[in-house]
Design a protein around this nucleic acid. Structure first.
Length: 856
RNA sequence: GCCCGGGUGGCGAAAUGGUAAACGCGGGCGACUUAAAAUCGCCUGGCUUCGGCCAUGCAGGUUCGAGUCCUGUCCCGGGCACCA
């Protein structure tokens, strides 16, 4: 901390250290933030630039199940590899702040923050329908389920009721939504959060059940103006009233439907979602606006978890209700003008019709009017609803933070106090889930069964652990003060360093880490522990670097060792949905990959299988992964070209945010550039190396101007996070600076400082040889005289009718009349004027320093 | 289906509404060399009757002037997808 200097906090999303190590795609963001960090240091900022490890997680646990290696050992090993790889790249992290989420000194404070959430009523246990993933043996949060499958590994997920820990993120929905606006984040990530939170305004309306008037079905609707158009009601199969209201003759049918619907996996329900199945319960509800009897159905198209799990169906003005009404022959009423009931639902606004006292009102006005009426009559009230659900926070896993609670015999819970933290995992030698829904921790009874040390009463520990996201929810705060054992971080450090000025990391965390961390941050804000409402001011996502992989197929999808597989090229394969089969026989096939370095090429460059040259491989550009054999390792690049060349190339490839396939062919270009930089300062001959004598002072006018232009250009590019064009400017400098005179010292040293952002090793080496004792990294950014950026003579383009016809050179401050005369005097211009009909120009557009356009 | 991004040389890419293709890769020619490598220099969108013409996915529009702004359309990538 240094209160005298402005701070700059530039942070990378810390990685989960997987067993595969880094590939060339990973460091792109790290290299970019490193260049920014170096730039900001030179500009006088006190820069915080740390790195650490998101080290709890499933892969290490799965590896433990397979091999019997303790996940802690795997994790430590993987961290070693990652740290070694990152250090090779010359990233200027403050390694004294390195943190690891599995470190007991870190776990303590993760658990402590959980206690804060609990104390504020934001952590609770509830029996809810959860996403159970049998293959992973754990429940998952909504954010971790994609298309009915687990986000990690794509395993099927089923819905079932279970008692779980939940975090009340929904209480923060409004603030999580509203505070997004101020953030300098990519628009698409903000939008993903907006849509995930899914705010909608409307009303809650109560419909009494006929014959049981004390019971009412409450619905949420965004279109209370269409109340007169409701023709039936629908409850979700899981709705609590389903069992109570079904008439005797319908009960059996209803129970069968509910049983069928609730047993379906999420995925099945989604696949069947268009079917619009449902059954009539035999019960009726009464429409509060006109007393109409509305049949009550149950149908799986109504979701239990949203609103109240029940709807009023307005088939005239809602497409889903229209589809259902059509199939089940329910009446369709038109209550908003502008549609055609024969064609489908008219969902847009219009003018209310057939709606009693609302008739004639525009939809927006009708909504106000009916809401007033509902509130006055006590039938309902205005309400806001969110798609966002509470965050399911427990996992049936071993390798995570234990929940810091004791379950007492009376059913209550006691939080562990600060001096009882951290609560560490028990040692196990088998990490498999022990029973159908049991957690690995349940197999350590001596750990589970304990006594409350405060009262001596028997107590049980919680057998669940926290999800992997817990540690990453607050790590950016621990970096501020990582050695603190008295608090998660000091308030002074927080006040000085926060917020994060630039955060760089993958867009795949848009509704996971980035939402969860914002939520915790706001809770900490409410608890007075942090002073900003948002943690990450500016966010950028690096584009993914892809690999070239080479694919063929075989007919042994289940990997039967007894079967000798037949191989096929892509041209013989048919893909139908998720099935892959032989085009002629229909035999099931499975895709296989040849490692990129093993691929053979024929004379035309076509890729072939190394052992079966008759099999033509299909080249696919996709994410780098070990299983696809398309991983390019930074280690190999560094060995061949050096770390500086790799750094330079990763940034030079294109804009940070743009993804592109990796091509090693571009590496030599960057390597050559660095050699040119070296030879700019060092003369190599058979006699050895020697420093070229630098001309004293600032050099010729052209050299001064080039230097100033480069300094100004590189600085502007770095502010915009455009290192690719900054590097191009450095290349131009090296090409041109010794055109008319030897390299002057001022220009050379300014150049080295700029180069050191991207190629720190080389720049440092030359810097030392120039006789400097201190590191170039500590130097201030080179200055330049803005007057040098302006040249006295400028070249302008002359256009005739918008087409380029000539160039003229004129003094920078030449008058419009002078420029016009010079342009008209040009031979080629004159010819085109006469070709265009001649005579006096209708108009002459002069853009100072740019062009003269003569319009005929 | 809906909502976002993005389509520019052989390739990665540049370009405040003002000379399209900077910079790099690849390719060509030349210099140096006995030769090669390395290095250095020049050339490198297409067509051309050498005047130019055509070129930023496609078709229009606005403008003195459009890769850039507007409308429509096609393709690629991503997100969402019964949220009442």
């Amino acid at each position: 901390m240094d209160p005298a200097r402005p701070k700059y906090y530039v942070l990378d999303m810390f990685p989960y250290p997987s067993g595969e190590g880094l590939h060339v795609g990973h460091p792109k963001g790290y290299i970019c933030t490193d260049a920014i960090a170096r730039y900001k240091r030179m500009r006088g900022f006190n820069v915080l630039h740390p790195m650490g490890w998101d080290a709890f997680g499933l892969p290490a646990e799965q590896y433990a199940v397979q091999t019997g290696t303790h996940p802690g050992i795997t994790t430590r090993r993987n961290i070693e590899t990652y740290r070694r790889q990152l250090k090779q790249l010359g990233l200027s992290y403050d390694w004294s702040r390195e943190i690891d989420t599995t470190d007991p000194r870190y776990v303590k404070w993760t658990q402590w923050i959980f206690c804060k959430l609990f104390e504020r009523g934001l952590a609770y246990q509830a029996e809810v329908a959860v996403n159970w993933c049998p293959a992973l043996g754990t429940v998952l949060a909504n954010e971790e389920v994609v298309d009915g499958r687990s986000e990690r590994g794509a395993h099927p997920v089923v819905r079932m009721p279970m008692k779980q820990w939940m975090l009340r993120i929904t209480e923060y929905a409004e603030r999580l939504l509203g505070d997004l606006e101020e953030l300098d984040w990519p628009e698409h990530i903000k939008r993903m959060q907006v849509e995930w939170i899914g705010r909608s305004e409307g009303a809650r309306v109560k419909f009494p059940v006929e014959g049981a008037e004390k019971k009412a079905i409450e619905v949420f609707t965004t279109r209370p103006d269409t109340l007169f158009g409701a023709t039936y009601m629908v409850l979700a199969p899981e709705h609590p009233l389903v069992g109570e209201i079904a008439s005797d003759d319908k009960r059996g049918e209803v129970q069968r439907y509910v049983a069928k619907a609730t047993q379906r996996s999420e995925r099945q329900r989604m696949v069947e979602s268009d079917d619009k199945t449902g059954v009539f319960t035999g019960a009726f509800a009464l429409n509060p606006v006109n007393g109409e009897r509305l049949p009550v159905w149950i149908a799986s198209y109504v979701l239990a978890g949203y609103g109240s799990g029940a709807i009023m169906a307005v088939p005239g003005h809602d497409e889903r209700d229209f589809a259902f009404a059509t199939i089940h022959q329910l009446p369709i009423l038109q209550v908003v003008s502008g549609g055609d009931p024969a064609k489908g639902a008219h969902a847009a606004d219009g003018r209310a019709i057939n709606s009693g006292f609302l008739d004639g009102l525009e939809s927006a006005a009708a909504r106000q009017r009916i809401n007033d009426w509902l509130e006055a009559e006590g039938h309902g009230k205005r309400a806001t609803s969110y798609k966002l659900r509470d965050w399911l926070f427990s996992r049936q896993r071993y390798w995570g933070e234990p929940l810091p609670v004791l379950h007492l015999e009376d059913g209550s819970q006691r939080l562990l106090s600060e001096d009882e933290l951290p609560l560490l995992l028990p040692e196990l030698d088998d990490w498999k889930p022990s029973g159908e829904f049991e957690t690995p921790l349940a197999r350590a009874p001596e750990w589970i069964k304990t006594r409350d040390p405060q009262t001596g009463a028997p107590a049980q520990r919680d057998p669940n652990t926290m999800p992997q996201w817990a540690g990453s929810c607050w790590y950016y705060l621990r970096f501020l003060d990582p050695q603190n054992d008295a608090a998660p971080f000091s308030l002074e450090a927080e006040r000085y360093w926060m917020p994060v000025d630039l955060y760089v990391g993958g867009a795949e965390h848009a509704v996971l880490h980035l939402l969860y961390a914002r939520f915790w941050h706001k809770v900490l804000y409410d608890a007075g522990l942090v002073h900003t409402v948002e943690p990450f001011t500016r966010l950028r996502s690096p584009g993914m670097i892809l690999g070239h992989s080479y694919r063929y197929y075989d007919d042994n999808p289940d990997e039967d060792p007894a079967h000798t597989p037949q191989l096929y090229s892509a041209s013989e394969v048919q893909v139908a949905g998720e099935r892959v089969q032989h085009r002629e026989t229909g035999a099931p096939l499975r895709a296989r990959w040849v490692r990129a370095e093993d691929v053979r090429r024929d004379a035309t460059g076509q890729p072939l299988h190394p052992e079966h040259p008759d099999i033509v491989l299909e080249e696919v550009i996709e994410k780098m992964s070990k299983s696809r054999g398309n991983v390019v390792s930074p280690d190999a690049m560094i060995e061949r070209f050096g770390a500086d060349a790799l750094r330079l190339y990763e940034l030079f490839m294109g804009p940070l945010t743009k993804g592109a396939p990796w091509s090693t062919d571009g590496m030599p270009g960057c390597h050559r550039f660095l050699q040119r930089c070296w030879r700019l300062f060092i003369e190599e001959s058979s006699a050895g190396e020697r420093l070229r004598p630098l001309a004293p002072g600032a050099g010729t006018a052209a050299q001064q101007r080039l230097t100033a232009q480069t300094i100004a250009g590189v600085a502007a590019d770095m502010e915009q996070i455009q290192p690719n064009t900054a590097i191009a400017k450095l290349m131009v400098f090296v090409r041109d600076v010794t055109r008319d005179a030897p390299l002057p010292r001022e220009a050379g040293e300014a150049f080295l400082k700029m180069l050191s952002l991207f190629a720190p090793h080389l720049a440092e080496e030359i810097w030392q040889r120039l006789g400097h004792a201190d590191s170039i990294a500590l130097e201030p950014w080179p200055g330049h005289d803005p007057a040098l950026l302006e040249t006295s003579l400028v070249t302008l383009v002359v256009q005739v009718n918008g087409r380029r016809r000539a160039e003229i050179t004129a003094p920078r401050d030449a008058s419009e009349a002078t420029l016009r005369a010079a342009a008209l005097a040009d031979e080629n211009v004159a010819r085109h004027i006469s070709d265009a009909g001649g005579g006096e120009p209708r108009r002459v557009v002069v853009v100072p320093g740019r062009l003269v356009n003569i319009v005929i």
